[in-house]
Design a protein around this nucleic acid. Structure first.
Length: 342
DNA sequence: TAATCGTGGTA
DNA sequence: TTACCAAGATT
């Protein structure tokens, strides 16, 4: 790096980088629902929903959720079931429980704590995003977008997820944040990662940071950030049960099962029907079980093939302790697939 | 640190 | 069809 020192900060960032970035953001920013509010609660909801989830998928959930729970008090006092219901289909259901626990903590404390990371479901990234976007405090929010942007800008060739990498970026970026635009800075970096500094085929020609980007200068934009080695998807066969009582179907909630935690789903198992069928037939006696077919569904590192069986149980088994849902219930995708199977 | 948790989109 | 992955947190 032999360029004239007066154009570069000690951290290796060009003097004009921040103003170029913010000007680009002012010009190109998408009109997203959570960019129309300064309510910390609403911004928290958006940040939690956006964890590992695409913007387009979040928008309808965000709007419905805020309509149902318009403020932190409404969410804190809601039933957990109603919170799950609003989350059904969005995935990573632990987020729903943690979000309500956070709402209850905020009500109990009389406001957001100074250390946002103390809140359930609020990790390093979300705490920094909330601090900057909702409270205007300088904080470096390192999500997948920001890690890609900064690893390329500094040509960081190590593993970007490591503690060392995050410290490296935080040290260099924290001082760049304009005091009056901390939230815009955070969102501008992420917007840049989402729309310009793409994982594959980044659009460097239109990038507001192109003149200072070390990876671009050295032709490393394809090899940085270094791709992580991911486990192969494992193929898993399992079975699910559709047990009908008239026009309603049995749903269960297995609290202790980390998978689909707390969600209402049709009974399903990692074992074949021959192992679990007799047990359930004894509990819900009725007609002969019938193999309906199979459905496929990918979940993180597994490809599930689900063999679906169904039967009609006798009326006296339809007690009040079980939940018998109508077919129009809002359910996780996996349960919907099982019920939709013709 | 590494595994785990859903879903839907894309190349 | 397959692999990858998108505003991560938790254990």
């Amino acid at each position: 790096m032999c360029l004239s020192a007066r154009f570069w900060s000690a951290a290796g960032v060009r003097d004009d980088a921040v103003s170029e970035l913010l000007a680009w953001y002012d010009r190109e920013r998408r009109d997203l629902p959570w960019r129309r509010t300064r309510d910390p609660y609403a911004i928290l909801v958006s940040e939690v929903m956006l964890q590992q989830t695409r913007v387009e998928a979040v928008i309808p959930y965000y709007l419905r959720f805020l309509e149902r729970f318009p403020d932190v008090g409404a969410l804190a006092s809601a039933t957990l079931d109603s919170v799950y219901e609003m989350w059904a289909g969005l995935g990573y259901y632990r987020r729903a429980r943690n979000l309500q626990a956070t709402a209850q903590a905020v009500v109990s404390l009389g406001g957001f704590p100074l250390v946002l990371q103390d809140l359930p479901g609020v990790g390093e990234y979300t705490a920094a995003a909330l601090a900057s976007i909702a409270f205007g405090r300088p904080a470096v929010a390192l999500d997948g977008n920001a890690l890609r942007v900064w690893s390329r800008y500094f040509a960081y060739e190590g593993a970007v997820m490591s503690v060392a990498a995050r410290r490296f970026f935080t040290e260099r970026v924290l001082g760049l944040i304009p005091a009056d635009r901390a939230g815009d800075f955070t969102q501008a970096v992420m917007e840049l990662g989402a729309r310009v500094c793409l994982a594959r085929q980044p659009r460097c020609l239109v990038c507001p940071l192109q003149s200072g980007c070390a990876a671009l200068a050295r032709g490393l934009t394809e090899s940085i950030p270094k791709p992580s080695v991911k486990a192969r998807r494992e193929k898993v066969a399992l079975c699910a049960l559709r047990i009908f009582c008239g026009d309603r179907v049995l749903l269960e909630r297995r609290e202790r099962d980390p998978f689909l935690a707390g969600q209402w789903v049709t009974p399903w198992f990692f074992e074949p029907f021959s192992q679990v069928g007799p047990d359930y037939l004894a509990r819900f006696p009725g007609g002969e079980p019938r193999r309906v077919g199979t459905v496929s569904h990918g979940v993180t590192f597994r490809d599930l093939t689900i063999e679906v069986w169904e039967w009609e149980t006798s009326r006296e088994s339809c007690d009040e302790e079980q939940r018998w849902a109508g077919l129009d219930a809002r359910l996780p995708r996996l349960a919907s697939l099982v019920l939709e199977l013709a």
